[in-house]
Structure formats: C-alpha cells, structure tokens
Design a protein around this nucleic acid. Structure first.
Lengths: 223, 223
DNA sequence: ACGCTCTTGTGCACCGGTTCACATGGCACT
DNA sequence: AGTGCCATGTGAACCGGTGCACAAGAGCGT
C-alpha cells in the first residue's frame, strides 16, 4: 500500500482503530478518568486487549506496568499521529441530499475537518447557501481549494460524475479523497482515496440475512 | 465471525466485493454486453483478476473457458446470493440531517432496500413527512417494524442515543443493523451490525496526509 | 480432425493482522 | 527493604486473504 517507510509506519488496521480509541479516551477524559488499562480501553473500543496494547506500542505511547495508560497523554499522542491536531479544511463536490447532510454533519468539524467549500455542477444549486457556505460552480473548484486551503475532498455526486469530480480534485491539488459515490474511480498512486458505499453496506447485511433466514435450521446460536 | 456453516459459506471479503461486481455487471448489461472475462470485470471493480475468478467460484457461477462469464447469468447468481433479490424494507431511527439524506437516497431503493419507516425521539420531528413517509415516535418502533415488515434497521442518531436505538431495534425483531452513529454499540451475537463512521474515515485520511506532508522528502513516487 | 489460442479454475506461497500466553517490571502495602 | 499483585509489552502461532503461475479445457479456424 503506502510505500514511504522513511518514518516509522503504522499498520493500516491500527490506524483505522485509532479514531475509535480517541473517541473512547475523550469520553473518559470528560468523566475525569486519568488512567486507563488496555482492558477497559479495549472494551470501550470493542476490540481485543492485546490488540490495543500492540496498537499503542506503535505510537511509542508508553504505559506504566501494573497501572495502565495516562488518558491525557494517550489523547495527545493519538491526535498527533492522526494529522497533528492541525485542522484540515474539506471541500465537498456534489451538494445533493448526501452532500447537504455531510456539510451539516457536526462530527466533521469536531474532528478537525471543517467544511470550507461546496461546489456543484447543477446551476440550480450553485449560489445557494448551505450550512453557512455558498455553493460555487464545479468549474471554480481549483479557486475554492486555493482560497479555503482545503486539503481533503469529499465526493458526493451521482456515480456517473464521480470520476470527473475526483479528477478535478486531484487537478486542484487535493491528495486525500473520501468518495461516497457508488463507483470505482481511478486515481494516481500519490492520491489517497477511501470509498464509503452506503448501498453496498446494506447489500452485505442482506447476504447475512438471507443466509440466516434461508437456513431452515435455527438451532445454532453457539454462545 | 459468522459461525453457521450449515450451507456453504462465502468469505467475508468476497461478500464485500459482490455488490461491486453487481454494479459493474449492471453497467455491462445496460450497454448490451453479454459475455465478460474475469480480467475486464476485475478492471471494472478495481481488483485483481484472479481474485474475481476465485470469488465467482464460491458462487458456483461457472464461466466458459476461453470465453468468459455470461453477464446475465452472473447478475442473477449474485443477486440470489445477496439476499435472494427479495426486497428488504428498511426502518431508519433518527431523522436528523443524516437520517433525512439517507431516507432520500435513491441507491437504497434501487438496491432492493426501500425506506419503509422513519422514527425519531424528538417530538418536533415526529409527525413530519420526510421523503414521503411520516416520522413516527421512537416508542412505536415495534409497531412500525411490524407494519412495514422491515428487516433492516439504520441508526442515524447522535452517538449517545445509539445504544438505545440499537436495543430497540433488536427488541423489535430486527437482525440486521447499519450504524452511522459514531459509537461502539453492543449487540447479541445473533444480530449482524455494520459500522459506517464518517468522521473516522476522514481521520484515517488525515493520518496518511500528515504522514505525507510531515515527511520532508518527496522523492518516492514508485510507479 | 487437429492444433492453436484464449480464459477459466485452483494449488501454493506469501503477507498482514489477530490473539494467546508469558516474561518483564513498576507500584503499593507491610 | 521485601513481597505480592497487576498490567504492560511482545514472541510466536494461527488465520484469512491475496496474487502468482500453471494446468485444464472450450471454441475456432484450417
């Protein structure tokens, strides 16, 4: 996958869990807890305790044997790893139902990803104000990126416009993209893209459901 | 993970790719293509060709050597595996920004997952009509599930209400849940739950970005 | 009918990730 | 200071998944 290797690299699976730990730690900090063991953090994150310890060992976040980890320390450590606690403005391409919802989603701002720009191809949508931001034409994407200093792009267009949207984002200098359009898009290998496919998620659930109900026998349960 | 094993089980990784194949195949069918090789399907889905062949072998979807796979046949085969092409009505708990966007999302209906019911805890929201459906109080969830014959639940509540929402869904008989709330929730092991965490996705992107820009050297590129 | 070409189907080696189990070592209490 | 307890940190086995590479086999042209 990533082939930098200059600085110590953290396994992808670990990186994917760090935000979950972060959430759990924030909760603990809110309730005044100062120390946490790998076991309780694991419970909070829904993973195995040994896994937590191994994950944290990648961050050089040392705990104290017999005691646990310092919550505040861990928080800071994880924040540094996940983008240096620097704010990363986001530009959204495609202001349909999903784009609007995303632009209003509090979780992004709280996580250090303020929605700084909105663009759309539809002239009916351009010019409207959504979540405090005026929607600008997709042709001006490069300007929007430059002005807002956006570093992350979200694609929330229909599937058939996704590739073009991604191309424009890359053209505008964006190197991190989150794609909600149900389409496989190609990007240069210096661009990091993640796919979030809502319909696919339901279909995966559908498989297991079908499997369960299609199975005439229900005497399993196992635990 | 899943421990049924009565009928032949398909690896999770394969199941996750089937919807992508399905999309690609629909595209091909639309353009009148009747046969497809594992190589072109792989390209369409953004995966390795051998992987495609191995995936399809799990479905007993035989291709013809030297020729490829029949598009229509494959389509039918995958649809059967992913829930028997039966429609699975969905009930959404939490009709905020995200819940509204999801209830209007075309992709769900197209994939056989019509939004059949909406519930919310906020009396201000209850009674309103969203995407053609009246929002009902969360207390009536069991009724809504029964009336709509919903088999899938989507949780789009704030994090602190997620566990309760999930509990209610399980109570109402739902066994397949898609959770958009940024919270780890516990479910009985006969319930299948998938997590879609928007902020987490951005944070993962943030890690790689930080890593890239934090690295003073940029002489890599590799391809 | 024969052989060539093309694509499927799969055995096998490799790789990342997970989990167990245990040694290591700090802290508290006496 | 000594002793016991407890949680960390990690070596090593295990497991699922991926991708190469090749044999098997279908169709087509001659």
């Amino acid at each position: 996958m990533s082939e930098v290797g200059t600085i110590e690299s953290i396994p992808d699976a670990t990186v994917a869990r760090l935000p979950v730990y972060l959430r759990g730690l924030l909760e603990l900090a809110d309730t005044g807890v100062e120390m946490v063991s790998s076991v309780s953090l694991a419970e909070l994150a829904g993973v195995n305790a040994a896994n937590v310890r191994k994950d944290l060992s990648y961050l050089h976040a040392h705990g104290t044997r017999g005691v646990g980890y310092e919550v505040g320390h861990l928080l800071a450590e994880i924040r540094v790893v996940l983008g240096g606690s620097r704010s990363s403005p986001v530009v959204i391409v495609g202001v349909g139902n999903l784009g609007r919802a995303l632009s209003r989603y509090d979780g992004f701002l709280a996580g250090g990803f303020p929605i700084a720009g909105l663009v759309d191809a539809d002239p009916m949508v351009v010019g409207r104000k959504v979540a405090g931001t005026v929607v600008r034409p997709v042709g001006e994407l490069a300007d929007v990126v430059a002005q807002t200093e956006a570093t992350v792009g979200i694609v929330a267009t229909p599937a058939n416009a996704a590739q073009e949207a991604v191309d424009r984002l890359v053209q505008a200098g964006i190197r991190s993209i989150l794609n909600f359009a149900p389409a496989v898009v190609a990007v240069p290998n210096f661009v990091d893209i993640r796919q979030v496919d809502l319909a696919t998620e339901l279909q995966i659930l559908g498989y297991h459901q079908h499997r369960r109900t299609g199975d005439s026998d229900t005497s399993l349960v196992s635990g």
